[in-house]
């Protein structure tokens, strides 16, 4: 096909349709670009920056950048993976990620991405934040110590559930957090339901369904079987 639009991703030809982002085109072609805040079902948020690639020599977020014919994109280079590892370490030090006691372990996108990028330690000095845990809801537990600020819960609640249970607010490292749509700030005082899309969207261990934890034995969990880079074509959550 002579009129097929393509660009180069790490030297490989990737075809795309006009309007597709680099990330969308890569996923369609089964090529993994590390990402945390992007989800195929929702518009790009562009906050985690794990998907940073080099386009014709300049850095850019592949989840927000539209593919252009003939562009040359670097993805899994040592330079970029180094930066991504540093970004992952930033997540691990700003939050509190004690995986052994986290129900999401084995099914967590952050953890799986850190394995993929061979993150051996958090490297920086830990912040050990003290963010709230909300157990008020009968079916859902919220542990914001693990939040990566991807806003997927905000979008899912708004766009799919039509509820606006969550909003991102506050500023900076100390302020930025998910706000819950009730005067008490408690999830129990909202119309959130365990059947909401937002209840299953969180890529990490913040929004957890109660009494479901550790149901899948170690070895059987999503990323025990195959590494995240081999699961490109499967839905992320």
């Amino acid at each position: 096909m002579s009129n097929e639009l393509t660009f180069q991703l790490d030297g490989e030809d990737i075809s795309f349709t006009p309007g597709q982002t680099i990330m969308q085109a890569a996923k369609a072609a089964g090529v993994y670009i590390p990402h945390l805040c992007w989800h195929p079902d929702f518009p790009a948020h562009g906050s985690c920056k794990l998907c940073t690639v080099k386009v014709n020599g300049r850095f850019g977020s592949s989840c927000t950048m539209e593919a252009q014919a003939g562009m040359s994109v670097e993805n899994r280079t040592a330079e970029l993976d180094d930066k991504r590892r540093t970004l992952l370490q930033m997540f691990f030090v700003e939050g509190n990620h004690f995986c052994p006691s986290c129900e999401k372990s084995g099914n967590c996108t952050l953890q799986a991405t850190a394995y993929e990028l061979k993150m051996m330690s958090p490297h920086f000095d830990m912040f050990y934040p003290d963010r709230p845990v909300d157990a008020s809801h009968p079916d859902i537990l919220l542990d914001f110590n693990r939040c990566i600020m991807c806003s997927l819960c905000v979008t899912a609640s708004r766009e799919v559930d039509g509820k606006n249970v969550f909003a991102m607010g506050g500023r900076g490292i100390l302020g930025r957090r998910i706000h819950i749509n009730s005067e008490s700030g408690k999830l129990a005082d909202t119309d959130f339901a365990v059947t909401d899309r937002a209840a299953s969207i969180c890529p990490v261990g913040v929004i957890l369904v109660k009494r479901k934890g550790f149901a899948v034995p170690i070895g059987e969990r999503q990323y025990d079987k195959t590494p995240i880079n081999e699961q490109v074509k499967e839905p992320t959550a």
């Binding site: 562009g46 906050s47 985690c48 970004l87 930033m90 600020m149 506050g170 500023r171 900076g172 490292i173």
Partner: peptide, 11 residues
């Protein structure tokens, strides 16, 4: 003053 939106700047 970092708004906190993106990881590299927030952290």
């Amino acid at each position: 003053e970092s708004c906190g939106f993106c990881t590299p700047c927030r952290v």
